[in-house]
């Protein structure tokens, strides 16, 4: 019997590995392998044009010592963008999900589609539309401000307003998060709300004592996923602002892209990639650590 189960175990191991092989190879060839190569590259002056030599920690020293005049600013604007973008999009998405979760809301499929579609269209088209609406002279936004008697804004063309302008666009594209929230809201058992109703509690108590705690695992999931993607903001900077005005959108990934593919300094760009990786990993780690203080895991099914 024991020998038999050993044999089954070995057979399962072989079958399991064989079936998982595409993903295992993909992980080694396209993810883990390249990560290690990029770590090695970050200690070299690799550039497509000239022979490679090891330079030790030079790339990192250049970045951290301020030798590279763009680096610290780039870290700063990336962190500020992520710290503003995550709450802006999560709150927007949560609010919309709460509204769509109302009992017997008319036209729900239509409304859900309206809020979701911005996330599935090419971001380059989204960027074009917002650039046009934000045009200082003939854009819709400044026209509306003028109708309200307010002064116009430079939107993405002005260093002081570029961040909120980009947040407007990313919040418009937060439909993915909204759908996750909505699904979780719909998954909260009715019986919990009924318990509060029996106690004579109103909407606010329902929200505070049922909805919010029941939603914390989903909020946490969205928070981590969206933090990771916000720290990798690239396309807005590439298409709309080219890192400007005054380097205010020179996000790390955009700076990395330019370093690698415009200035062809692959070694330094790899170092930037690793700095970004450490930032993302430590923030994600911090979030996981803090999660035990506020995420409510109910009875696991």
């Amino acid at each position: 019997m024991l020998a038999h189960s050993k044999r089954v175990e070995r057979r399962n191991l072989r079958a399991g590995l064989l079936f998982s092989l595409p993903a295992l190879l993909g992980f080694l060839l396209f993810t883990a392998g390249p990560m290690i190569i990029s770590l090695v590259m970050s200690f070299t002056d690799y550039s497509i044009a000239k022979p490679v030599s090891f330079v030790g920690l030079k790339n990192y020293v250049d970045l951290f010592s301020g030798q590279d005049i763009f680096f610290w600013n780039s870290v700063k604007v990336t962190l500020i963008f992520a710290l503003c973008n995550v709450p802006a999009c999560l709150v927007t998405a949560f609010l919309i999900a709460l509204l769509l979760n109302m009992k017997k809301l008319p036209c729900l499929p239509f409304l859900r589609a309206v809020f979701y579609i911005p996330t599935i269209i090419p971001i380059i088209a989204t960027a074009m539309i917002f650039m046009w609406m934000m045009s200082p002279d003939f854009g819709l936004f400044n026209y509306l401000l003028e109708l309200l008697g307010l002064p116009g804004s430079g939107w993405i063309y002005d260093a002081s307003s570029v961040l909120p302008s980009l947040l407007m666009m990313t919040a418009w594209c937060s439909g993915n998060i909204m759908v996750v929230f909505l699904a979780a809201l719909q998954g909260i058992p009715r019986s919990l709300y009924e318990a509060i109703e029996v106690d004579g509690g109103g909407q606010i108590r329902k929200f505070r004592h049922i909805t919010l705690p029941m939603m914390t695992p989903t909020i946490f999931f969205n928070l981590v996923m969206f933090m990771v993607s916000s720290l990798q903001a690239f396309l807005q900077a590439y298409i709309m602002t080219q890192g400007g005005p005054l380097n205010s959108t020179n996000y790390l990934v955009y700076y990395l892209y330019r370093t690698a593919f415009e200035f062809m300094e692959m070694g330094k760009a790899s170092a930037l990639g690793w700095v970004l990786f450490v930032i993302i990993a430590s923030l994600a780690g911090l979030m996981f650590y803090l999660s035990k203080y506020w995420v409510v895991y109910g009875d696991e099914r």
Binding site: F30, S38, V228, A260, A269, G273, W274, L276, F277, A281
Partner: peptide, 15 residues
């Protein structure tokens, strides 16, 4: 791998 910055692997892949 979902947590890894995409561009960090993009450079070695490109090379």
């Amino acid at each position: 791998s979902i947590m890894l910055p995409y561009f960090a692997t993009l450079i070695p892949n490109f090379v």
